[in-house]
């Protein structure tokens, strides 16, 4: 999530309530923030997750990311049928004070978008790994998944990133 800080940069700081609300059991807890990182998913260092099941990969932003953003008030999503590329922005998430681009962790064609987010953007906060999913992609190059971080690596990445700021 390349974060585009406009106006009121609510900085760093958006490390708010850290209690995770995800239903799945956390396998790792960040030392500072206790954000949930799930097993079985792959992670981009721009804080998106991807879950590859059968022909489709589901994409969203991580608990760590939503936690730093704060309450999400608007989600911008692509339309079904468009192509997304690994590392390129496909949408945006807006919180009260921050705007963040969301990058696709994998290339392919968007086959479904989570339309519930237009009415209930807060699903990204309350359920980042489940109800707050953003798009489903038919991967054009599934081997791209190998370039992503595993849960342990992502947890370590978040810890290091937090420590650096």
């Amino acid at each position: 999530m390349a974060l585009r800080m406009w106006a009121s940069s609510t900085a760093n700081a958006l490390k708010i309530s850290c209690a995770s609300k995800a239903n799945l059991s956390p396998t790792f807890a960040l030392s500072k923030c206790f954000s949930t990182v799930l097993d079985g998913l792959k992670y981009a260092n721009s804080h998106e997750w991807v879950k590859h099941e059968g022909p489709v990969a589901t994409v969203g932003i991580t608990d760590h990311a939503q936690d730093h953003l704060g309450e999400v008030v608007f989600v911008e999503l692509p339309e079904s049928g468009v192509s997304v590329s690994q590392g390129a922005s496909f949408g945006a998430v807006e919180s009260v004070k921050a705007t963040s681009d969301v990058n696709s962790p994998i290339s392919g064609e968007v086959v479904e978008v989570n339309t519930k987010l237009s009415e209930s953007p807060g699903l990204i906060n309350s359920s980042p790994f489940e109800d707050g999913w953003m798009i489903k992609v038919k991967p054009s190059n599934p081997s791209e998944l190998e370039s992503l971080l595993g849960p342990k690596e992502y947890t370590k990445f978040c810890e290091e990133e937090d420590a650096a700021h």
Partner: peptide, 8 residues
Amino acid sequence: RGSLWQLG
């Protein structure tokens, strides 16, 4: 543009 953590 930057990461959230650079907002400050």
